[in-house]
């Protein structure tokens, strides 16, 4: 089975340590009930709208924008090694109860570039099965919102 290789120095990241400066003006002030970080800095208006919908969705228990969090996925485009930084992690109660939430990685796409299919394939074929096979980081899934 495919298994994820964790960062040996820092295998588990935390929203606890996220702090950064930005000059971007599109931002969403998060609900403290659902997000540990007080702002989502948005790359597009769609992301702010996505936050609004997440906060009103009855299955969502927590979410975070993956910025300054260190969640990175190495992938290959042709022979070139690149890093994919997914947009959001959303913790969803999908019927397994509050102690076994689904960690859903969401990519919010304004438009789909050529590398999108390589990122999606890497997440679906390697990263998600790899992390799920570890068994120690809960259940994970990936979805692309086009």
């Amino acid at each position: 089975p495919i298994k994820a290789m964790l960062d040996p120095y820092n295998p588990t990241g935390s929203t606890n340590f996220v702090n950064f400066n930005t000059s971007k003006s599109i931002r969403w002030e998060t609900s403290s009930k659902l997000c540990h970080i007080n702002w989502v800095i948005c790359d597009s208006d769609w992301e702010a709208e996505f936050c609004r919908v997440l906060e009103s969705h009855d299955r969502v228990r927590a979410y975070v924008k993956n910025q300054g969090l260190g969640l990175e996925v190495p992938y290959k485009m042709g022979s070139e090694v690149r890093k994919y930084i997914p947009d959001f992690v959303v913790r969803v109660d999908d019927g397994h109860g509050p102690d076994d939430l689904l960690n859903l990685i969401v990519e919010v796409k304004g438009y789909r570039r050529e590398d999108a299919k390589d990122k999606k394939a890497t997440m679906e074929n390697y990263w998600v099965p790899g992390v799920n096979n570890l068994g120690t980081y809960g259940r994970w899934a990936f979805a692309e919102l086009c």
Binding site: V53, V60, V92, V106, L145
Partner: peptide, 16 residues
């Protein structure tokens, strides 16, 4: 975006 997000979450909830 709202129906799309609902659909997305319902779909992953059904398949996982």
């Amino acid at each position: 975006i709202e129906p799309a997000v609902n659909e997305l979450i319902e779909n992953v909830c059904m398949t996982h």
